[in-house]
Computed example of a mutant assay.
Amino acid sequence: MTSSQALTTGSDWLARAGLRPTRQRVALAALLVGDGQHRHVTAESLFAAVQDSGESVSLATVYNTLRAFCDAGLLQEVTVDGSKSYFDTNTHDHPHFFWEDENRLSDAPADQLEIARLPDAPEGAEIASVDVVIRLRRTPATDR
């Protein structure tokens, strides 16, 4: 896909959510969805990618734009610990693998996950969502 096609795809993505296509939003959207593939990014990794593309966007703008994309339903925020969030372009409910040794998030096969029962929500509350993050680490190589 060409750079021009990626920008068009990003602009269309923003328009479907009713977001104004500012230069910064279009640049970030093109990186996130321009090739039609789903992404799991951190604000820092997206900031590095936009810098590599030659665009001038501050890290604060990246954070604010990711928040706006989440608020518009374009991204799903996945928190892997109290201080680290990933942003997923696939907003459908699905589980994730978090590769601890690589600090990388990827989709886990949803058809292999079974949740038999959830606890009742406390009085006055309802369950809004269930996030499943399966933490992985590489096993040491063994001699056979």
Rank of each mutant, 00 (worst) to 15 (best):
S4I: 14
Q5F: 01
L7A: 10
T8H: 02
T9F: 02
D12G: 02
D12H: 05
D12F: 00
W13N: 11
W13P: 08
A15I: 10
R16H: 05
A17H: 09
A17Q: 09
R20K: 11
R20H: 04
P21L: 00
P21T: 13
P21H: 04
T22A: 01
T22S: 14
R23W: 05
R23H: 04
Q24V: 14
V26E: 12
A30R: 11
L31I: 07
L31E: 13
L31G: 00
L32V: 07
V33F: 09
G34N: 11
G34V: 14
D35G: 08
D35Y: 08
G36C: 00
Q37P: 03
Q37G: 10
Q37T: 05
H38G: 05
R39E: 15
E44F: 05
L46N: 01
F47Q: 14
A48Q: 13
A48M: 09
A48P: 04
A49R: 14
A49G: 06
V50T: 15
V50C: 09
V50N: 06
V50M: 02
V50P: 00
V50Q: 10
Q51T: 15
G54V: 10
S56P: 02
L59R: 11
A60K: 10
A60Y: 01
T61N: 13
T61A: 15
V62L: 07
Y63L: 02
N64V: 01
N64Q: 14
N64I: 04
T65A: 03
L66W: 10
L66Q: 04
R67W: 07
R67M: 00
A68D: 15
A68T: 14
F69H: 09
C70E: 15
C70T: 13
C70P: 03
A72Y: 12
L74W: 12
L74V: 08
Q76M: 07
V78P: 09
T79S: 15
V80Y: 12
V80I: 15
V80P: 13
D81R: 03
D81C: 06
G82T: 07
S83K: 07
S83Y: 01
K84T: 13
S85I: 02
Y86K: 03
Y86T: 05
D88W: 01
D88Y: 06
N90R: 12
T91C: 07
D93R: 14
H94K: 08
P95N: 00
P95I: 00
H96E: 04
F97P: 01
F98T: 04
W99C: 04
W99F: 05
W99H: 14
E100R: 10
D101V: 00
D101Y: 02
E102L: 10
N103P: 05
N103S: 12
R104C: 01
L105A: 07
D107C: 05
A108G: 06
A108R: 07
P109Q: 11
P109Y: 05
A110D: 08
D111L: 08
D111N: 13
D111S: 12
D111W: 08
D111I: 00
Q112L: 11
L113I: 05
A116R: 13
A116F: 09
R117D: 09
R117I: 13
P119C: 01
P119N: 00
A121R: 03
E123D: 07
E123C: 06
G124K: 09
A125T: 13
E126T: 12
I127P: 01
I127V: 15
A128N: 12
V130E: 00
V132K: 03
I134V: 14
R135L: 03
L136V: 03
L136H: 07
L136T: 00
P140E: 14
A141C: 01
T142I: 09
T142Q: 11
D143P: 01
